[in-house]
Design a protein around this nucleic acid. Sequence first.
DNA 1: GCCAACGTTGGC
DNA 2: GCCAACGTTGGC
Length: 154
Amino acid sequence: MWLIKSEPDVFSFENLMKSPKSTTCWHGVRNYQARNYMRDEMKLGDLVLYYHSNCDVPGVVGIAKVVKESYPDATAFEKKSDYFDPKATKENPRWFMVDVQAVAPMKQHVSLEDIKKNSKLSQMKLVQKGSRLSVQPVTESEFQEICKMGKVNF
DNA sequence: GCCAACGTTGGC
DNA sequence: GCCAACGTTGGC
């Protein structure tokens, strides 16, 4: 299971729910470790915690799932794109993405503050100092604890 | 807006 | 391969 970060001003969980089929391609990740998780380890049906960063109340706001496994991130080929990377080619794409679909919003948002206060979640990468990974694995028990705090069942 | 922590780039 | 300079992330 996973946690992905998004800035709500750029693409919020509400935006995801309003998208066609509640699905979007998770383009624009330009960090190798995050890419490796997407390319190598995110599997169809994997559940994902959707986290809002860089906003008033950062935290987990919804549940999503992987609906398509990794494929090349075409925004890296587009010169006009903010995510253009001159070193990415179709033969050697360099950057990958998956498709994610909204499953359900949290009944109650689980703020970063609440996560930090919960001793069961102290091992999460999210709360470790200096961790900035935008795609990160979470354990089953962490996932369940967050769901419990968000008053949803999975 | 500030700034600590991290990641990447590129000269040497 | 080292490391200084620069860019980015993201909480506060």
